[in-house]
C-alpha cells in the first residue's frame, strides 16, 4: 500500500489546495477506470494460486490464503457483467477492509494510482442517468481522468 501512495503517478501539487479531500485507489477493468476509498483497502496482492469452489456463486473465483486467513476472491469483471479475461502480470487482488464485513479479495485488471478528490470533483451517480446500481457511489473527475467511484459495502453485500 505504501508503494501505491508514493507512486509516481500521484500529483503532489494537489495535496494542499484547500477543502477536504478523500483518497481513492484507481484500478481498471477493461477500458474503464474504477476507484474505491483507499481507507477500505488493506492490501494489494499479486494473485496467489486460487482454489475454485464448486457450486459457489458465479462471481466468486475461489479462495486464497492470506497469512493463514481464508479470503474469498470475487471477480469484478463477472460482477459487472464484463467479459472475463485471463490473468496477466498486471492482474491484482485488492483485499478489502471495511471494518465490519469479512475481508474480500477483489480481482481487478490493473491497479493505477491514488487520486485525492475534493468534494467539487465528485458528481453523484445520477449524473450517469437512469437507475445506477447501489454500489456506484458517484463519478470522480480530475484532469482528464473519469473515475467510477464504488461503494464497497454495497458491492460486497449485494
Amino acid at each position: 500500500m505504501a508503494d501505491i501512495v508514493r507512486s509516481p503517478g500521484r500529483d503532489l501539487r494537489r495535496a494542499n489546495d484547500g477543502g477536504k479531500r478523500i483518497e481513492y485507489l484507481a484500478f481498471t477493468l477493461g477500458s474503464q477506470i474504477y476507484a474505491v476509498p483507499i481507507q477500505h483497502i488493506a492490501e494489494i496482492l499479486k494473485p496467489p494460486p486460487i482454489t475454485e469452489i464448486p457450486r459457489a456463486p458465479r462471481n466468486v473465483v475461489g479462495i486464497i490464503s492470506v497469512r493463514g486467513k481464508l479470503v474469498t476472491v470475487v471477480d469484478l469483471r463477472r460482477r459487472f457483467g464484463l467479459v472475463e479475461s485471463p490473468f496477466d502480470r498486471r492482474t491484482r487482488i485488492l483485499l478489502t477492509d471495511t471494518g465490519d464485513d469479512e475481508p474480500i479479495g477483489l480481482l481487478v485488471d490493473e491497479v493505477r494510482q491514488v487520486y485525492r478528490l475534493a468534494e467539487h470533483e465528485i458528481e453523484p451517480a445520477a449524473a450517469l442517468g437512469g437507475d445506477q446500481p447501489a454500489y456506484i457511489f458517484g463519478i470522480g473527475r480530475q484532469d482528464d481522468a473519469l473515475l467510477v467511484l464504488l461503494e464497497l459495502k454495497a458491492l460486497i453485500e449485494s
Binding site: I53, V60, I63, L70, T72, V74, D101, E102, I104, I156
Partner: peptide
C-alpha cells in the same frame, strides 16, 4: 471456515 460470502455453498 469458509467466509460468510460462501455460506450458501
Amino acid at each position: 471456515p469458509l467466509g460468510r460470502s460462501l455460506k450458501s455453498v
